[in-house]
Design a protein around this nucleic acid. Structure first.
Length: 479
RNA sequence: CGGGGUGUGGCACAGUUUGGUAGUGCGCUUGGUUCGGGACCAAGAGGCCAUGGGUUCGAAUCCCGUCACUCCGACCA
């Protein structure tokens, strides 16, 4: 009797249509709303609260490593953007331009920053003069604009929020170390805060950032088997330094070029959370970034004492957790569904029978498991359960990644495993030639995601040309 | 950028083929009964039918343009 009335309210099943499921979740969990400018989304309070929690915890990690926050301008003069050849070629197609101030045409048009390398370069060139000024470890939280053709909330929007770290160092070694350190920060953050496993690796030459010597990335695997780049860290060598004349005097009174890095993560992480933990009841949030960690639902709240008890418990728990008590007169069942849609990790039910027994019911979002908890040491139980939910999310996502990682030694094997099992991470050997990279993509549909740091020797030869293999590459379809 | 689909109260849709001045369900407001998995009854409020132009006595409906959303591909965080 799947009452048609109620079905209408439900979200599309993720097995039926994953893309539609994603859009449904994003809208129904009230994370975003569309605006009237294509590809620009309104991040609603619940969605923004997730970003603030990400921001806060990541920012603490940056600062613990000595980074300082700055703010650079929104606009970049065209001439500045053009100083580094590869960089401008990479970004030019998706840059938005400001051509007028009021009704007056500008003498030089201004680019709305798609990324701020050039601004940092100019600033470092102006302010760093001596080896004593180095390193400079700057980061900024801001939004950037890239005029994308196709857009999806969080995954690809024309304006998006991010952080971009930009550092300069006296030596290449130090800069390389920083590049790797920050990639590890991202990976640890994904694991410990977002409960999301990632693969760390290096991008191939064709896939690296415009202007970089080397690009490192963390790749996560979504429920549907598609890869999502969750963070990048670049080593620039002294390429930008030469283009922007970023020099300093070293200990031996010699003029040297600075060595540089940049690294970034974006609101796309929210998309990653949705697609790696979500289910057919909606969002499933990692406890550490859940704006509401515990939803308190009074049962039979008209009965004497229930509302008061719910409010009392809420006030108690709020000292240690993010708690919301829902005293609205929606039915209990409605509230259950509502907070499940919003991905709240724990639900606390308190009704007349519980009050009699000095207990409440705690229900996990991830598996709906119910436990009775004494009100005496509730804080400890909640804390332990939140921890448990986080670990369970991680192991479930890790299992998904393991199950969808396929090791292949021939092109035919890649094709058949993809046809058979659908999207996932394909690991296969590669000779290092771009032509083979393209050929694999053309024949199998999967592109190179990265060259994982953790290498396995699957065979001696390139899966494409049969010549000696240099690396194991992880291939996949990506968002 | 190529191919499909959509745009009608806050939401989901019907009405468009065959032009005649807008309807259903949910939600919202008020009152009452309910309350351990999306409750029910009653009475209300709310829409120049995405937008600009055209055809017509008359357009949600027909024609042309624009914008946005969405899905599938190619490219990108």
């Amino acid at each position: 009797m799947a009452d048609s009335k109620k079905m209408v309210e439900q979200i599309t099943s993720m097995e039926v249509d994953f893309a539609k499921w994603y859009t449904d979740v994003v809208l129904k969990a009230e994370l975003v709303d569309y605006s009237s400018v294509k590809g620009c989304m309104i991040i609603r309070p619940y969605g923004y609260a997730i970003w603030e929690l990400i921001q806060k915890q990541m920012d603490d990690m940056f600062k613990a490593l000595g980074h300082e926050n700055v703010y650079m301008p929104l606009f970049i003069p065209e001439s500045l953007l053009q100083k580094e050849k590869d960089h401008v070629e990479g970004f030019a197609p998706e840059v938005a331009w400001v051509t007028h101030g009021g009704s007056e045409p500008l003498p030089e048009r201004l680019c709305v920053r798609p990324t701020s390398e050039t601004l940092f370069c100019e600033h470092y060139a102006n302010t760093v003069h001596s080896y004593r000024d180095l390193p400079k470890l700057y980061n900024q939280w801001c939004s950037v604009v890239r005029w994308e053709k196709t857009t999806r909330p969080f995954l690809r929007t024309r304006e998006f929020l991010w952080q971009e770290g930009h550092t300069v160092h006296a030596t290449a070694e130090e800069a390389i170390e920083e590049t790797e350190r920050m990639l590890n920060v991202y990976a640890d953050f994904c694991k410990n805060v977002l409960n999301m496993p990632v693969v760390k690796g290096r991008k191939t030459e064709s896939d690296k950032f415009a202007g970089a010597v080397a690009t490192y990335a963390i790749e996560a695997l979504m429920h549907d088997g598609k890869a999502l780049q969750a963070g990048t860290s670049h080593y620039f060598g002294d390429g930008f330094a030469r283009a922007f004349d970023m020099t300093f005097t070293d200990k031996d009174n010699k003029l040297q070029y600075m060595h540089q890095t940049s690294w970034g993560t974006t609101t796309r992480l929210i998309g990653a959370i949705i697609m790696s933990h979500g289910d057919n009841n909606g969002l499933v949030l990692p406890p550490k970034v859940a704006p509401i960690q515990v939803a308190v639902i009074p049962i039979a709240s008209h009965k004497p004492g229930v509302t008061e008890k719910a409010a009392e418990i809420t006030e108690r728990l709020q000292k240690r957790f993010r708690v919301k008590c829902d005293l609205s007169d929606n039915s209990a069942g409605w509230k259950f569904a509502e907070y499940e849609m919003k991905g709240v990790p724990l639900r606390l039910e308190i009704g007349p029978k519980d009050i009699e027994n000095n207990q409440c019911v705690l229900v996990r979002r991830d598996n709906r498991e119910k436990v009775f908890a004494s009100l005496d040491n509730l804080e400890e139980d909640v804390e332990a359960l939140l921890e448990t939910v986080g670990l369970a999310l991680y192991s479930k996502a890790a299992r998904n990644m393991e199950e969808k990682t396929y090791r292949c030694t021939t092109m035919e094997e890649i094709k058949s495993v993809l046809a058979d099992k659908g999207d996932g991470f394909v690991e296969a050997m590669w000779c290092g030639e771009e032509s083979c990279e393209d050929e694999v993509k053309a024949q199998t549909g999967v592109g190179s995601r990265c060259i994982p740091f953790v290498q396995e020797h699957l065979s001696d030869v390139c899966v494409c040309c049969g010549k000696p293999a240099k690396h194991m590459v992880m291939w996949g379809n990506a968002y």
